[in-house]
């Protein structure tokens, strides 16, 4: 058992890194913008589908991934328009885009799935590239470098004037408007960036597993939240207060999530049940602050009196 777990280890880490990258996209909306954006369940597949179909039609892997990124940004734009210009609450706006994307993804792939075999195409990352390839082609390294690059770019961006404005928008919209910040525009920018990154990770995931499937994004937002929460719980105390480290923490959260996921499956859990378990774990972690406040908060005043 342990042996098979160790054998699967590099694969779990690689997948975890890819999901961690997606979770960083979720982080932008969930933590910075304070919006739970459900578009990602659709846009991750859009990214995978665009990348696969483009490569099948002879496009270079980098161009395909870039266009996948742009496609994700378009999905974010749709949600942003629903929310900002049509006044639809953000969760509902995300659900509407996600539903539309189901049709869009089927159209892109002309079906429910497409395969992108590593034997026929020049892929950047793959299950097959974990062993027996030069180290600079190793999927683990490639994905880790991409993750580091994305963290670097985001660290820079959220330190710029526009980036600070987006952070303020998510933190306090009334104050932002009073300081002349265009909160509508900022929400759209953040939604586009988030979904662009999610779609990009979808493109990586499709190459890694060798296919894109219309259902591949189901529950992606929950996995993203899980990675954020796990990262915070395990590394929050260690890596405090620096934005780049916070993003890294999300990436690490993704890895831990995937290793635990693999281990639980190897312990004999039905894979069919995993989505429910993931959801329950996230539900419990999301509930902790509330439960603490409601049931475990010590009454300071009465405690003081008992000492008196």
């Amino acid at each position: 058992m342990l042996n098979s777990l160790l054998n699967a280890f590099p694969g779990s880490v690689a997948q975890g890194l890819i999901w961690g990258l997606m979770a960083i996209g979720v982080f932008i909306t969930y933590k910075i913008l304070d919006i739970a954006d459900l578009t990602v369940d659709g846009s991750i597949c859009t990214g995978g589908a665009v990348c696969a179909v483009m490569m099948i039609n002879g496009c270079n892997v980098w161009i395909s991934m870039f266009v996948a990124f742009l496609a994700g940004m378009l999905a974010g734009l749709a949600t942003g328009v629903f929310h900002v210009f049509m006044g639809i609450p953000p969760i509902l706006a995300g659900i509407l885009t996600q539903l539309s994307l189901y049709s869009v993804n089927l159209k892109i792939m002309s079906g429910a799935n497409v395969s992108l075999s590593v034997r026929n195409y020049d892929l950047l990352v793959s299950l097959q590239y974990l062993k027996g390839v030069p180290f600079y082609c190793n999927t683990l390294l490639v994905v880790a470098l991409i993750l580091a690059a994305v963290i670097g770019v985001l660290y820079w961006f959220f330190g710029t004037e526009i980036g600070c404005g987006i952070r303020a928008t998510g933190c306090n919209a009334a104050m932002s408007k009073a300081q002349g910040i265009n909160t509508d525009r900022n929400k759209i920018i953040a939604l586009m960036m988030s979904n662009g990154i999610v779609a990009f990770s979808g493109a990586l995931l499709t190459q890694y597993q060798g296919f894109a499937d219309v259902n591949m994004g189901r529950g992606a937002v929950v996995i993203g939240l899980a990675a954020i929460i796990i990262g915070e719980a395990l590394f929050g105390k260690l890596l405090k207060n620096n934005f780049a480290l916070k993003l890294l923490q999300v990436g690490l959260g993704g890895i831990v999530y995937y290793i635990v996921y693999q281990a639980v499956i190897m312990l004999g859990t039905e894979p069919d049940m995993m989505k429910m378990y993931s959801a329950l774990v996230v539900a419990i972690f999301l509930a902790i602050p509330y439960l603490k406040e409601r049931y475990f908060k010590k009454n300071v005043a009465s405690k003081g009196e008992s000492h008196a």
């Binding site: 330190g159 710029t160 004037e161 526009i162 600070c164 932002s176 300081q179 002349g180 910040i181």
Partner: peptide, 20 residues
């Protein structure tokens, strides 16, 4: 300091220069 920097840019175009 970031809050002050946000206020210092009130009425100005916000671009890709440093936020502070």
């Amino acid at each position: 300091d970031e809050n002050l920097a946000l206020a210092a840019r009130r009425g100005k175009r916000r671009g890709l220069g440093w936020g502070i």
